[in-house]
Design a protein around this nucleic acid. Structure first.
Lengths: 195, 195, 195, 195
DNA sequence: TATGAATGAGTATTCATTCAT
DNA sequence: AATGAATGAATACTCATTCAT
């Protein structure tokens, strides 16, 4: 029991150290030696928990994506009206991306570089299934434009990463009003205009 | 003259080799030795043109961003009506991002990782000034929502990078209709609804 | 009893795993971790049976040499005529070296590299005492040339290792006739020409 | 010119350092770092001259085997009578093996372990072609037993390695008389008895 | 007796950079 | 302007060995 906890703690320390280093200097700055030093373990110990560096990165990606998704669908109920459901998910995601910027910036790097295996990326995407289900329903209900899931994602979720990047780089913090504007932009881009 | 040309060719060969390598394996995969080999020069030669590796990356980023911007404002005339002007710029950018995916993917990596100096990133952003001018005017004309430039960029330009990523990863190619949908989403997200 | 057997089994599993690994990739390829994995024990367990890696190799050498010698003197009776006695021993050894090539190749590596302690090598040599006794007698009887034991060994026993190496490397198998030729060569090289 | 010489010197220093280390502690003891230190170069420099460690070992093997063979056929003339020719070659080889024990012990390790590529070993064997030609002729002339080249080698050349091993291990030095005995044993083992 | 977890020192190899030519 | 040779420091990863359980 105590041993198991110690193991979990060590693995987490390693994952944490890796996020920090990748965020500060990219994949290349996260050398196994530096990770080990920050996590307070021997370099060899990392290999007890991960097959190699790529495996470490992949696991870290999936881990973080899972955290992300578990928050994304907080309080979400598939029975809610489409717009309401989308609003809840969107604000959850925005809140994660803008508050947990450590995790978000890491995910953003993974999503825009060849750091992570294609296969692992795919696994990460599948975790968002409830959102894609919601979009499907929205299209059937003629509430959401009949456009591809890629476009829906590109215009509602992906932009939040840009805002997070700005926040991180410029110390800028987005207030409630700004967040409202962002949500409106997201919704306006995909809602089907009723005339 | 011929000598100058040879110099330019060499520098370009180096820049080109770097883009290829960064795209294939990220910053870390682009070692000076590999760059030199692909560019058909000696490692030492790189240092005649660039102070060090960071300088090489920075210059490459600015270079590529300039290419990008010179295309972005093709056929653009500040005197055009706001929506028309925006449409021209947006399609220019989309065409660059989706057709010149080599350059685009490189820029996307730079924009989402700590690869490039903060200062250099800033210089890159400033090259888009005609677009920000257009947005300013659009707001004054009550054609565009009175929201921050960050939001405008996040919801109109940034999403294209996601589409490019998808294209690259999945071999998917976006057709005219899809592009139209994307433009509409972009415009809908920032246009001021006239009631 | 059952406990003792289990211990012996484990020790043998370790020794066996080591032979396999050394044969495939030399001393360096036989890491304690790999040995443990193949022998289905924990790395730490190896240290219950052997003081350290060198001790493991030494014991394995002696063990294997003992196997070798117990076969070498099968059906051998010191009272037999010299040539007959030599013939029996020689064929025993050849049969071991050529049939038990796993063990033989291992011994050959040990005998031609600094893998094994000098002291342990000496102990291995002493196991062949009945053969050296036979040679001594043969010399007294003027049946065998009055040359050093080293020479007698070099020209009768050592060559078999070369044949084993060839067999291993080339998949070549030596038939009865070939074996007869080998024995004749061995005997011709040391027998004292009469008249 | 001076540069070329410096390069050759460096390569030789590396090869030399490698032989020393392999002789003292086997393949495993010859780490690239130790080799570099003894050769007075940086570890990275080794990779300017050799693709990797295996390549270094292979080249060293062939190099040394070439030295060996260039001596083996000193003063040898294919037109000499078979026995005379064989005698010259045998004494050349014995002299190399027993005097150049550094090189010989290294070759013996290579020949009895998986240190060297099978392909490279083959290349080494081919260098002895004049000897195999001589043996062929000897068989045609009914001077040498009609047995395989493997056997001829096993009983005439291979035993010398054993003597060298003994010399090295025990400080024992073989005198002229002993050498004569060894040659006689070699010749007796393969000569066709005329009755 | 037996182990899985842990590690500091080591492995082969590559790095960004410099320098003599 | 251009280079091949050179390198110390770093890279990812593995080693033989120990220790708490």
């Amino acid at each position: 029991m105590a041993q198991l906890q110690k193991s979990i703690d060590k693995k987490n320390a390693i994952l944490n150290a890796t996020i920090s280093l990748v965020n500060e200097g990219g994949f290349q700055a996260a050398s196994m030696a530096k990770i080990a030093k920050i996590a307070n373990v021997s370099p060899a110990t990392i290999y007890l928990y991960f097959k190699n560096k790529q495996d470490l990165i992949n696991q870290l990606y999936l881990n973080t994506k899972q955290q992300f998704c578990s928050i994304a669908f907080n309080n979400y109920d598939p029975l809610l009206p489409t717009k309401k459901g989308f609003e809840i998910i969107w604000y959850n995601i925005a809140s994660f991306k803008l508050n947990e910027s450590r995790e978000s910036y890491f995910l953003s790097q993974c999503d825009n570089t060849p750091m992570v295996d294609a296969e692992t990326l795919q696994q990460g995407i599948e975790l968002l299934e409830p959102l894609t289900e919601l979009w499907k329903r929205g299209k059937e209900e003629n509430v959401i434009k009949p456009i591809s899931l890629y476009l829906l994602y590109a215009y509602t979720i992906y932009p939040i990463a840009f805002l997070m990047n700005i926040q991180k780089r410029e110390g800028h913090v987005f207030n409630k009003n700004c967040l409202k504007n962002a949500f409106d932009a997201a919704w306006d881009s995909i809602k089907l205009a009723t005339n």
